[in-house]
Design a binder for these strands. Sequence first.
DNA 1: AGCTGTATACCCCGTATGATGTATTTTAAA
DNA 2: TTTAAAATACATCATACGGGGTATACAGCT
Lengths: 208, 208
Amino acid sequence: MDREIVHIAIVEDDHEIRQTLNLILDGSKGFSCKYAFPDAESAIASIPNLPVDVVLMDIDLPHKNGIEATRELKRKCPSIDFIMLTVQSDDDSIFESLCAGASGYLLKDTNPVDLLVHIKEVFNGGSPMSSQIARRIINSFRIIDNPLSERETEILKLLSQGLNYKDVAQEVFLSPHTVKTHIKNIYSKLHVNNRAEAIYKAIKQKLI
Amino acid sequence: MDREIVHIAIVEDDHEIRQTLNLILDGSKGFSCKYAFPDAESAIASIPNLPVDVVLMDIDLPHKNGIEATRELKRKCPSIDFIMLTVQSDDDSIFESLCAGASGYLLKDTNPVDLLVHIKEVFNGGSPMSSQIARRIINSFRIIDNPLSERETEILKLLSQGLNYKDVAQEVFLSPHTVKTHIKNIYSKLHVNNRAEAIYKAIKQKLI
DNA sequence: AGCTGTATACCCCGTATGATGTATTTTAAA
DNA sequence: TTTAAAATACATCATACGGGGTATACAGCT
């Protein structure tokens, strides 16, 4: 099963990089690279009709950027894997790319041999990324700190499920008055004035 | 700066694995492994007082598991990096570990040479993980599908910021009546009856 | 012994909210 | 070109909600 050929497409506006990548990839055993596009528009128009397994996508493209292109193409062709290949390594680019459907995120200074390895990895269901980039993603999982007490967290969770004062009170065997007091305290601790904002903040800070 | 020695601690209940790892790591140039613990409790008691850079943590430990141990230790010693070293690769274990503060997640069948490389990576601010595990993490970023219109999304975002009918109406130059109608439609599309649940669902599905 | 935080419980009050309707216009797809 | 979806707007009504208070009891910390 490792003998299968991986069919690749490149989307990259820089003529030289595009040509170089194309030659390297198409010349390597087990790889085929017959398609290269200089912009998002032509890629979006053509790729859905091509027998492609993996797309190498630059982020900085002339009109429409590579993240948008990935979003549209991934919607049309969910089985194609996308690897972002870019100079940008800021958090926003990384997360947007992943949300758009990218399966890998590599920097352009990755050497050709590693690139081939990474393309194989994606093709076999992996997600290659430098360990520096992996760290940024992992850091997004951490909880900063939790000002809420256990009781308050419990109540906030129930509120996020759509329960009202009375229902929450019944659920946790408390007086509705007490629940109200807890909610007031939650608002004050999170510096918000209503339920909507409280839940938003709590989720963003991974409190619930 | 690559000449610095990485000080390692191991937490692993299996006697043989612990000894083997200990010998390999301590015998390698640039690495020092003087501490090995068979359970979470002893590790939690000792590690805060030891000069340790990286901890290799097994998940399956006798009483308290490795994820809990990581959570407690990371809280006490934020500068120590934790690598989970385990046979389990289920989604829950991965995400819980990362939320608990782990910086890497490797399977036990990782060969010793790679393990050394990965420890170096963590020490230098990276996050090593197999590309299979990376893929699972990345998949958690994807959006399933968005039933909301642009206008509705816009309004829901404003609601999550804590704005009320009137404020939203002003913000988007609409009649409060219209905003109310949009909100009704949002609730119906998300199958909820109130703001709290709507925001909770919307965030969980990455709609806002 | 005093302080702080948490958990519990109650009161009043004005208003924002959600449910249930009707209705027109614009836009996009079939 | 008809149809459907989206966006716009308004009315009524019971009630859930948030802000303002006050109060007791118990925990841990200093």
